[in-house]
């Protein structure tokens, strides 16, 4: 019933004069103005924002549909990174030596795609062997219990990786070894641009999937009302499996496509995980659409802190900003009474 009042049509003006929209509007204005000072701020915000959005989107999806605060999301990033380095290693020599530009462009994709697939399978295994076991027994204190489970998964995966593959970073200098290109007077490495393109394509596909496909609708339905979804003949276990698979695939994809920036090590997922958490808390837990916008917002705060203040404070400032936002909007910028993974 609160849902009804919350969603009841409000006048257009009031709708856009909310805290959320004022914040976003201000952010956009600041971003555009600062671009006159240093255009790289705008460009880099967009580029890093894409990466964070991809990472945070998966995290938000799992919380939105399954109510799991996944602290092992970073280890799935690590898995993607590791897979890509193992697959791409042998291919790299081949493509670098070839004369064909097409091969050079396509070379990195097998590694990235395999990583994505491995992530998907890992997610499905994780759901079946861990969360499903807990769900069968008890759903009491679900959020905290699953948090601890994911913390356990994280510890196990990190240390297994260390025992099996060792500590040394498996990295590459570049995926796409071409001359940096110039945008708005900012020189941008092709790798960076490509990751942005991948992120945008994946996010768009993901959004379409959630909104337009039968399965995507089923996911959203489960996130809003599990009983209702079951009544409509949706298999909860099936949706859960797919949710964790997709989210893990996104994390692994992010890890694989950032291999040139973050070499695969057992702890490589920790930093992206922290940023993804910044994003989902800022945006409102379990809200994929919010997480995507939030990814850009956090990227912007980080870029501005690094530029105007100092790198030392690059983690503190977003934290302070989020604390501030939570004071005014206790459930995040896009949080609302209505739960749904995509809907704001």
């Amino acid at each position: 019933m609160t849902a009804a009042t919350n969603l009841r049509q409000v006048p257009l003006l009031r709708r856009y004069l909310t805290f959320t929209w004022i914040t976003l509007g201000l952010a956009a204005v600041i971003l555009v103005l600062s671009a006159f000072n240093s255009p790289s701020l705008l460009v880099n915000t967009l580029v890093s924002g894409g990466m964070w959005a991809m990472m945070a989107g998966g995290l938000a999806l799992v919380f939105g549909v399954m109510n799991i605060p996944n602290f092992a999301h970073g280890e799935l990033f690590m898995l993607g990174s590791l897979t890509a380095s193992l697959v791409y290693g042998p291919i790299r020599e081949l493509t670098l030596s070839s004369k064909s530009d097409v091969l050079k462009w396509l070379g990195p994709f097998p590694g990235i795609l395999v990583a994505c697939a491995v992530g998907f399978v890992a997610g499905i295994i994780l759901e079946g062997s861990v969360f499903r076991q807990l769900r069968k027994r008890s759903r009491e204190s679900w959020v905290m219990n699953t948090f601890l489970l994911t913390a356990g998964v994280s510890v196990i995966m990190q240390n297994t990786d260390m025992l099996v593959f060792g500590n040394f970073p498996r990295g590459i200098s570049r995926y796409w070894d071409f001359k940096p290109i110039n945008i708005l007077g900012v020189t941008l490495a092709v790798d960076r641009l490509m990751v942005f393109v991948i992120a945008m394509v994946v996010i768009a596909a993901f959004a379409l999937f959630l909104q337009k496909t039968r399965t995507g609708r089923a996911m959203r339905a489960v996130s809003m009302d599990e009983t209702g979804a079951q009544m409509a003949g949706i298999s909860l276990n099936g949706v859960y499996r797919l949710t964790l698979g997709l989210s893990s695939a996104l994390a692994a994809l992010a890890g694989a496509s950032l291999l040139w920036l973050l070499p695969a090590t057992p702890t490589v997922g920790q930093a992206p995980l922290l940023v993804a958490w910044y994003v989902v808390i800022l945006a409102g837990l379990g809200n994929v659409q919010g997480a995507i916008i939030g990814g850009f917002l956090v990227a912007m705060i980080q870029q501005f802190t690094a530029y105007y203040v100092s790198l030392d404070w690059v983690d503190v400032v977003p934290t302070a900003f989020i604390i501030l936002v939570l004071l005014f909007k206790p459930s995040g910028l896009f949080g609302s009474e209505v739960k749904g993974v995509w809907e704001q």
Binding site: S40, S48, L261, L262, Q270, A271, Q303, A306, S310
Partner: peptide, 22 residues
Amino acid sequence: TDEDYFGQAQTDFTGVIARYKN
């Protein structure tokens, strides 16, 4: 003119480098 410290796994230096440029 610039002095920056960073934690483990910091890999995004683009903002800092923009400042160096200025």
